[in-house]
Write a protein that binds this DNA or RNA. Structure first.
Lengths: 217, 217
DNA sequence: GTCTATAGTTCGATAGAC
DNA sequence: GTCTATCGAACTATAGAC
């Protein structure tokens, strides 16, 4: 037994820093997170953060690149299995889009909060979205357009944006619905949440397309 | 003509500070916003911020209290005019919920970004939501429950949360849908956006309720 | 690769004149 | 109410030993 008691200590320093940064960034935001707090949580010297990631911005970008790569790889893999001509193609596309961020690839609540913050943050976050999420977004909008022949590109893009918003509310505050109706803080069932989210997003985009058709005709 | 040229200068210093703080907080977040930057934008001495609002936290709370009061007053006024037994009650409730933050009471893009950040931020933002938004949220969830007899309180609360998420995505990044489909940066029509958002949220919550019914039966 | 020590800047908040 | 001046703390980043 010459292994350290703390299992996080057996990881390379670089991974411990990324994990610690993910937690601290998620709790305090980019500006509120201190390099000192990250180094203490990772149990490394503060200077080591700059050796591995050059700057605070570089560390932030590395945290996002790690998770977004896994999330989007899983999204694309699931999307490629969808038959876009099937009657429930919209549901299957939305499932491919919305499930990975809530599953193991999503990195749990810590990265979930960072992911949510990307959508509402300033220039730095906007650049991260453009680099790491927009290419995948275009793939999904294209798939939704094929699954919904006759819908305008605009209404599909807005529906996509609304669906991501519903996802963001879920990863950022998955306890708020329960609190608002006075439910106990029981363990949340990921599959049940994804099922509701997919039903909502699919029904929502179908209704938005139908409303557009109704008002245009 | 002894009035200053800048119309913002004719406002009392307290209001100029609130307006400046709204912009700076929206661009840089709470931690990233500097009291010095706010004082410079408001064209007042930095010490005056502490005279009027005691602390940075106090100023932040005042910015949120000002807008949330107007938004929720308009929401409740609109909600009280809705006939909960009408066939389109869900659409009318969603319109009452989602339109005010995007209209004049919402304070424009600056407060919109702060509003969006409240949903994803840390403890400070969570406390702001609890104080300024949760009471109104409970009113709307109750109205939705009455308009959807037979739906569980849980699915209604989740549908409410998803709808707020779609709203948040809209106020935070109303140009992203256009960018993702390569549309020009034309002026956005608020009424058209609200119409799509209301259709999406209403169709979404109806679909989530229908899915629950189908899987439970 | 990892550490200690510290440089240089910026921050929120306060004191006190007017 | 509004200003100037400043304090002490906290921050990011770097230098240099090992």
């Amino acid at each position: 037994m010459n292994q350290p008691a703390d299992p996080s200590r057996i990881l390379p320093a670089r991974d411990r820093i990324l994990n610690a940064a993910e937690v601290v960034f998620s709790e305090d935001g980019f500006s509120g997170a201190a390099m000192k707090a990250i180094s203490q949580r990772a149990e490394v010297a503060q200077g080591l953060l700059h050796y591995h990631f050059a700057s605070k911005d570089g560390l932030y970008a590395a945290v996002i690149a790690r998770r977004s790569g896994r999330i989007n790889a899983e999204r694309i893999a699931r999307l490629e299995k969808v038959d876009l001509a099937a009657p429930d193609a919209v549901e299957r596309i939305m499932d491919a889009l919305l499930r990975p961020p809530l599953g193991p690839a999503g990195g749990g609540r810590a990265y979930g909060r960072i992911f949510a913050g990307l959508l509402v943050g300033g220039e730095r976050d906007r650049a991260m979205v453009t680099e790491h999420y927009d290419p995948t977004a275009r793939r999904f909008i294209e798939a939704l357009s094929r699954a919904c022949p006759g819908a305008s590109a605009q209404v599909v893009a807005w529906g996509y944006s609304f669906a991501i918003g519903a996802l963001v509310a879920t990863v950022a505050r998955d306890d708020r619905p329960g609190r608002l109706v006075g439910a106990g803080t029981g363990a949340l069932d990921i599959d049940a949440i994804v099922a509701r989210l997919v039903s909502f997003a699919s029904g929502g985009i179908r209704a938005a397309i139908a409303a557009e058709r109704g008002s245009t005709t």
